[in-house]
Amino acid sequence: PHKESAAGVLDELDGLARQIGAVNTVVVSGRRLHGFNTDGAGMLDALASDGGMPAAGRRCVVLGAGGGGRAAAFALAAAGASRVAVLNRTERKAQSLADAVRRTAPGCRVEPAPLLVDAVERAVEDAEIVVHATAATMSAAMGGGGGRADWLQGLARRLHRGMAVLDMVYTPAWTELLGEAKAAGATAVSGLSMLVFQGARSFQLWTGRPAPLDVMRQAVGLNELPLKR
């Protein structure tokens, strides 16, 4: 909850942390504090490793423009995605994020849109990567009131083969959205995968050593999930 506040009190930020405006890893070097954000890199690693979908040249959709959505949008654009559609309940916030991403990755087509059924269906129809970065799937799993959001139902109708779907939610580790992705022939990527890979990036920054990925995956139960198509 303090990622954004931390970014404002450190001595130095790496490029992605500065763009996102949030820090999840602090490295002490002498008397200076260096801030990093490994969320975006962890997401890219998860998509490439467990999703079989490197971001370069891909048509991508990011659902949500909060902290996770910001990290996803900047990271996908920086990795060479051809298009990043950013959808958010408040369209003004989606527009603001899209404008910021365009300034850092002018070669990427960044398209803001409201988080509504029609807009979601249009964005996802030809997408190759979909990143869900709202709390909607967690709320549904926890029995949140109001039923399932209409736009999630629209999303489910447009999932297809040749697509990787990453749900940043990792409680639960296997969400209804991931089940729908797998049923549609897409590759489902759990938020646990992103958690492991961003943690591995942080581990390497702190220790200078490669992280024990196999041990980390086993510890969180990632290998037990039905992730592949």
Rank of each mutant, 00 (worst) to 15 (best):
A78T: 03
E121D: 05
S96V: 14
Y170N: 12
A123V: 04
R102I: 10
L159R: 06
E91F: 09
V110C: 05
L155P: 02
D99L: 15
V101A: 10
I129V: 11
E121G: 11
R59C: 12
P172M: 09
A81T: 09
L76P: 01
T104N: 07
R70S: 12
E128P: 11
V62P: 05
G67L: 06
R102E: 12
A133P: 12
M163H: 04
Q95L: 14
L76V: 01
L115M: 12
V130G: 14
V110R: 09
T104A: 15
A136N: 14
H160D: 06
G144S: 12
A73Y: 02
D126S: 15
R92W: 03
A123W: 01
A133C: 14
R109L: 15
R157M: 04
P114F: 02
E128I: 12
G147S: 07
T90W: 03
R161L: 06
P112A: 08
A75N: 00
H160M: 11
A119H: 13
L159D: 02
P112G: 13
A136K: 11
P112E: 10
V124I: 08
A75E: 00
S139R: 15
R109H: 08
E128G: 14
L116F: 03
G80N: 01
W151P: 09
E111Q: 11
C60M: 04
H160I: 13
L87P: 04
G80R: 03
V130C: 10
A65T: 08
G162C: 11
Q95K: 15
A79C: 04
P106T: 10
A140K: 13
A105E: 04
E121M: 15
A133I: 04
M168D: 07
A133M: 09
A149N: 12
A135D: 09
G147D: 06
E111K: 00
A156T: 05
H160N: 13
A119D: 08
G146Y: 00
G143D: 14
E111F: 02
T134M: 06
D126R: 14
A72L: 02
R148H: 01
D150Y: 02
L159M: 05
A141W: 02
K93V: 10
A140M: 11
A85Y: 09
A140Y: 13
L166S: 00
G64T: 09
A71H: 11
L159T: 04
V61E: 02
G80H: 00
C108E: 00
R161G: 09
Q95C: 12
A136Y: 03
